[in-house]
Amino acid sequence: MFLSIAALSAPTFAGDGSRTPKPVIEIDTPGKCIAPADEMRRNHMEMLKHQRNLTMREGVRGEPASLNECISCHASKKTGSVHQEGEFCQSCHAYAAVKLDCFECHQPRANFKTSASKPGIKP
């Protein structure tokens, strides 16, 4: 639901962003995206939502639309992330004022490795 609001509002706001600074879109790893930029801007949320349901509920893997694949190309070279201020996902979502809650569960850093440790007990 929130995502479809984004789809409608993002192009409208993009036109007259005089007061709000325009989002920073720096792609450190240039290459071909799975669809043209226009389509990605408008539909990336639908692609991800569609894919999330397929992968999560039906076990479909290896399709082109994948959050981890987005991150691996679009993560900032410096921090490896898409979610901190000024980074790929965050800057545009902040500009469009659309809450981005993917990263409350998904890891926003590319190739992130969790540390091995004994959980549950305070060291």
């Binding site: 409350e104 569960c105 890891q107 590319a110 992130f112 969790t114």
Partner: peptide, 16 residues
């Protein structure tokens, strides 16, 4: 509690 150290292939987060 809020989490930040997820494995990219294993999403998990607060409140779920």
């Amino acid at each position: 509690l809020p989490l930040t150290e997820q494995n990219p292939l294993v999403p998990r987060g607060q409140g779920c």
